[in-house]
């Protein structure tokens, strides 16, 4: 009840604040709100008006993912048996859990057709990629049933890009990139055969050329952002002695935003892979900035910052200028996701 009261207060106050600071430039963000993991809730905020809608059940919701048409969202949420995939309309109606075989399902990703949802099913490291077709209600195991596929993102209507485990636990287990179809999971060669030395993570297919993949790896000694493509092979595009994490392509596929510790605390940078020149977006020695999300028009970035104490979502230009909060200071908010432009 206290949270609902605060959200109502937020609905009243935030538009006034936003009109005063002039942050309104349109768009809508879904995000997670709440300090306790078991009570986190997916909400959405209109960036221009500050109006907030509660969308998730609020019982340990996970990061929201918009359907391509912006009319639906999917996210994981805790249920009686474990963790389920919850699907809800953008206005908060028709929310329901997908029927799944496994009691633990995480990391949902909408297919380009907006009908199917891929997710990681199972517990621990023995997870599989499964795809739920909302039109038929059928759940299919992809990757030929291969276990150890931890996350997956769609490259096309019939291919997923996944992180998959290789090697033997306790000896040489590591994570590589896999191209996953319904029938098979094939490793994507990135660089030389590494014998389990390098650990690839957070792969992201380029939205314009899905065969160009950004990911992070400790290939070379430090965790950096790499690009693998047929044209250029494997290229380290961030190259720093401190860790670089979580690459996110701009909608036009020209830039990559990422998190880096190169200035001490975690900050947000962007790199133009053609020149490998790195630019600051949100960086401070006094507080942290993370989770960059490109606006659909590629001109703004939403991110999380703890500059006021609790994490709060800000929106700025891609150059980092005019950063303004879009959530309340005393409501920890994380995992911003822009609603696709076509729907607004």
């Amino acid at each position: 009840m206290a949270r609902r009261a605060k959200l109502a207060y937020m609905n009243t106050l935030l538009p006034i604040i936003l009109s005063l600071v002039g942050a309104g430039a349109g768009g809508e963000l879904a995000y997670l709100v709440g300090s306790q993991a078991s009570a986190r809730q997916v909400c959405a905020v209109d960036v221009e008006t500050g109006e907030v809608r509660e969308l998730g059940p609020g019982r340990g919701d996970g990061p929201p993912v918009w359907a391509p048409d912006g009319e639906w969202l999917a996210f994981e949420t805790e249920d009686e048996d474990g963790v389920g995939i919850y699907v809800v309309r953008a206005d908060g109606s028709d929310g329901a859990l997908l029927e799944t075989e496994s009691s633990h399902n995480r990391h949902p990703q909408w297919a380009p057709d907006g009908e199917r949802i891929a997710y990681s099913a199972g517990e621990g490291l023995a997870r599989q990629v499964r795809v739920h077709d909302r039109a038929t209600g059928e759940e299919t195991t992809w990757g030929g049933g291969r276990e150890g596929l931890l996350t997956a993102r769609w490259m096309s209507e019939d291919e997923l890009l996944a992180t998959g485990l290789t090697g033997t636990p306790g000896r040489n287990l590591t994570s590589d990139l896999y191209r996953v179809t319904e029938d098979a999971a094939e490793p994507i060669p990135v660089g030389e055969e590494n014998g389990g030395r390098y650990f690839e993570w957070a792969p992201a297919p380029n939205p314009v050329d899905p065969d160009m993949i950004a990911f992070e790896s400790n290939d070379g000694g430090f965790r950096d952002i790499f690009i693998a493509s047929e044209d250029r092979g494997l290229v380290n595009v961030s190259n720093h002695r401190r860790a670089d994490w979580n690459p996110a392509w701009s909608p036009d596929g020209e830039w990559i935003a990422f998190e880096s510790f190169r200035e001490g605390g975690r900050g947000i940078f962007r790199v133009y892979p053609e020149t490998m020149r790195v630019h600051e977006v949100a960086v401070s020695g006094a507080y942290e900035n993370w989770a960059p999300a490109w606006a659909p028009n590629g001109e703004r970035v939403a991110f999380v910052s703890n500059r006021d104490g609790a994490p709060r979502i800000f929106v700025s230009s891609v150059e980092g200028e005019d950063a303004e909060p879009v959530t309340e200071a005393d409501q920890p908010a994380t995992h911003p996701a822009w609603r696709p432009e076509d729907s607004q």
Binding site: S35, R242, A243, F261, G265, R266, E288, W290, N306, G309, A310, P311, P332
Partner: peptide, 15 residues
């Protein structure tokens, strides 16, 4: 603490 993300703290402390 929600204002200090655990993954970031683990990295910074390890460093």
């Amino acid at each position: 603490p929600p204002w200090e993300p655990a993954e970031s703290l683990h990295y910074r402390l390890r460093r």
